[in-house]
Design a protein around this nucleic acid. Structure first.
Length: 668
RNA sequence: GCCGACCUGGCGCAAUUGGCAGCGCACCGCACUUGUAAUGCGGGGGUUAGGGGUUCAAGUCCCCUGGUCGGCUCCA
């Protein structure tokens, strides 16, 4: 065996000898391997290996493999679009979670019919088995070749600048173009500026893809740029996996709080009131009341004092706080009171602007300032369910999770620098404990810090550093995963936010704990220290739910409407086998109601089966069925939401079981 | 805010090329009195989101406003 004909590589950690000049095609026999990782870099299978390379196969089902599949599918989409409309100009087309998109500059927006035609054209391209062939080019050559693609030219011009690591078109290294080569006559039928890698062949995309929707998106993500038409798609290694994904999406849609809100009669957004403004119906109100009552009780135990403040205020308050200077466009326009003059033109009453409050903190600051404060008063913890109004752009509204009017479970803690750390520790502990009580148990923390090079942040370096270090210590001490968010701090101070994962793994930003060095200055807050000097308190803003509405929406989706008994609007429903047994259940209901249980007896004309169906659909935790057998035994039969039953449970035991479930906040 | 799609009894949907607004559930009434996911019969309910226009004729075509949905941008 000649030295020239073989070379040594390391394949999946094992040294081996392969033919000199071998590519991934020779090294990997498994057809599920669609690319290779060579010395840490993702490469096409066609990439020629060199002696000493460390090589790993990339399975199509691996995260990298799925990205490659999706990115290749995006190329096929773009080719299909241009085959139908040669005038379409290409934007970018990266893989994203579960799929891909491609942006196009076209004269007319795509219609659902277009999507069908494009999808068919993609099928043809996929079946024709085009090869993806990488070709290295230069900026000059690429500029000529892509002279018809203005957006690609712009990307070439930006190469190496601010595109960042995420770009799939151009990277820091060499510039490359991928040709789609027809296997019949080896002609290049399409090309795209791209870093790659790609599947060897379009055929590998198979039938596990689908185009999902069309939307507009600003070129390079800036509102100032032109809007392009974006086509979204999803792609999977097989049709079965595609179907599984589609089923997952449907299941997620079923727990959409907007849908459940209507189905379970929890809340609505009447058009007559206005966009983003909800009303809670009795059942939604019952849940919300429990949430609020429990929250109040816990805050009371934790040493918070309850305050109330009005919904509107004169503009001067928000001038002091700075909101009008910075966030006026996020606020509803003012109620303008005209000035009044008497006959001689003398101002009798000055004109005045009143604003709906977008935040509660300025009001709480005024409460702090209402008297001279001593260090002995601190920490002062002011809590309010404060309803605020923010003029969210119409396009961002989303049910209860993004509304224009909502109620924050807001508190402001005024602390001395000395007790900042212990107070933060207590707050984080309190927040996490309360979230757990509501059934969210899987958290991580995000620490948002200052970008020192950005001048927007107020306060001196020393206090920022102390505060950031304190927050970090507190976060680390919690034992939770801590994700840094550099530059994500508010201009007035760093913050910790609690991210919670719900039942289907989505993460929601829940509570935030923010330090504020700015408002105490703007409001000239001070307290008298032990040595008699005036000192500036540190202010901590914190909300657990963020907003009650939003938390309500998150919980609805987390539980998919199957609220645990303590939160369920109707906790128990009594279903008599026939009318004869209604009084028996009403008697039981009376006892439970006396214990504060939300129970109804369904003595409607419907037959039992129908009632069971109705209350199951309404997701009532406990259905108590009673007929002759139960009454004779002084018992009742349980039916749970999942259809399981427990018949002949003695009455006192039944009562105990229900009360315990409510008391312990368990799910059933 | 931008782009696109959409808005028909409380809810989910139907209505040919512009040609009598309909169905299911829910609701009301009557009968039935039933053991674990829809009993039967009968009845009421819509100015087709609101306004304007084209037309002999508009749910359907055009314009404006409001609202919803999907994205983009934004989210103190």
């Amino acid at each position: 065996m000649s030295e020239d004909l073989t070379m040594q590589i390391t394949l999946d950690g094992v040294a081996m000898s392969v033919p000199a000049m071998a590519t991934g095609f020779e090294v990997f026999t498994d057809r599920a391997i669609v690319a290779q990782r060579v010395n840490g870099e993702l490469r096409d299978l066609a990439h020629r290996l060199a002696s000493g390379d460390e090589v790993e196969g990339v399975l199509i089902s691996s995260p990298d493999g799925l990205n490659i599949l999706r990115h290749s599918t995006a190329h096929v989409l773009a080719q299909a679009v241009q085959s139908i409309n040669p005038e379409a100009k290409l934007g970018i087309g990266p893989p994203i979670t579960d799929g891909f998109y491609y942006d196009f500059d076209v004269a007319e927006a795509f219609t659902p019919e277009d999507l069908k035609a494009i999808s068919k054209a993609m099928d043809r391209i996929i079946r024709s088995g085009q090869r993806f062939v990488r070709r290295v080019t230069t900026e000059a050559d690429a500029s000529v070749e892509l002279s018809n693609e203005p957006y690609k030219l712009e990307l070439i011009g930006l190469k190496g600048s601010d595109l960042g690591e995420g770009s799939v078109e151009v990277g820091a290294g060499e510039l490359s173009i991928y040709d789609n080569v027809d296997p019949q006559d080896s002609s290049t039928v399409w090309r795209d500026l791209c870093r790659g890698p790609h599947l060897p062949n379009t055929r590998m995309i198979g039938n596990g893809f689908a185009l999902t929707r069309v939307a507009a998106a600003y070129w390079r993500g800036s509102e100032k740029n032109k809007q392009l038409q974006r086509i979204y798609g999803t792609a999977w290694p097989s049709k079965d996996e595609l179907r599984a994904y589609q089923t997952r999406i449907e299941e997620a849609a079923k727990r959409d709080h907007r849908r459940l809100g209507a189905e379970l009669d929890l809340f609505s957004f009447p058009e007559e009131i206005g966009s983003g403004l909800a009303v809670f119906h009795p059942k939604g109100g019952a849940i919300r009341k429990v949430m609020e009552d429990y929250s109040r009780a816990e805050h009371e135990r934790a040493g918070y004092e309850f305050v109330y403040s009005p919904h509107i205020t004169k503009s001067s308050l928000f001038e002091t706080s700075g909101h009008l200077a910075w966030y006026a466009e996020g606020m509803f326009p003012p109620l303008q009171l005209d000035e009044e003059r008497d006959e001689s033109g003398v101002v009798r009453k000055q004109g005045q602007d009143y604003y709906l409050k977008p935040m509660n903190c300025p009001f709480h600051n005024l409460i702090f300032k209402s008297q001279a404060r001593s260090y002995r008063d601190l920490p002062l913890r002011l809590f309010e369910f404060g309803t605020v109004y923010r003029y969210e752009k119409s396009g961002v509204l989303h049910g209860l999770t993004r509304a224009r009017g909502f109620t924050q479970d807001d508190a402001h803690l005024y602390v001395t620098p000395e007790n900042m750390e212990s107070e933060l520790t207590d707050v984080l502990d309190f927040v996490l404990g309360l979230l757990r009580d509501y059934g969210l148990t899987d958290f991580y923390l995000e620490l948002s810090t200052r970008d020192a090079s950005n001048a927007k942040f107020v306060g001196d370096d020393e206090i920022w550093q102390t505060a950031t270090e304190t927050l970090e210590r507190v976060a680390v001490a919690s034992g939770l995963q801590l994700v840094p968010d550099p530059g994500g701090a508010a201009f007035y101070g760093p913050k910790i936010s609690v991210q919670a994962r719900d039942a289907i793994g989505r993460t929601w930003q829940m509570s935030t704990i923010q330090l504020d060095f700015n408002l105490p200055i703007r409001f000239d807050l001070e307290y008298t220290a032990a040595d008699g000097t005036k000192q500036r308190p540190v202010m901590i803003h914190r909300a657990l739910f963020g907003s009650i509405e939003r938390f309500f929406g998150v919980l609805t989706e987390h539980y998919a409407g199957h609220f645990p008994p303590w939160l369920a609007p109707v906790q128990v429903v009594g279903i008599p086998v026939s009318d004869e047994f209604s009084p028996y259940l009403h008697d039981l209901a009376k006892q439970l109601r006396a214990k504060g249980v939300r129970i109804q007896v369904d003595d409607s004309d419907d037959r039992m089966q129908k009632k069971i169906r109705n209350h199951t659909l309404q997701k009532v935790p406990f259905q108590l069925i009673a007929g002759g057998e139960d009454r004779d035994a002084s018992a009742v039969s349980f039916r749970y939401r999942d259809g399981t039953q427990d018949n002949g449970v003695p009455l006192n035991e039944a009562i105990e079981r229900i009360l315990t479930a409510i008391e312990t906040k368990v799910q059933v």
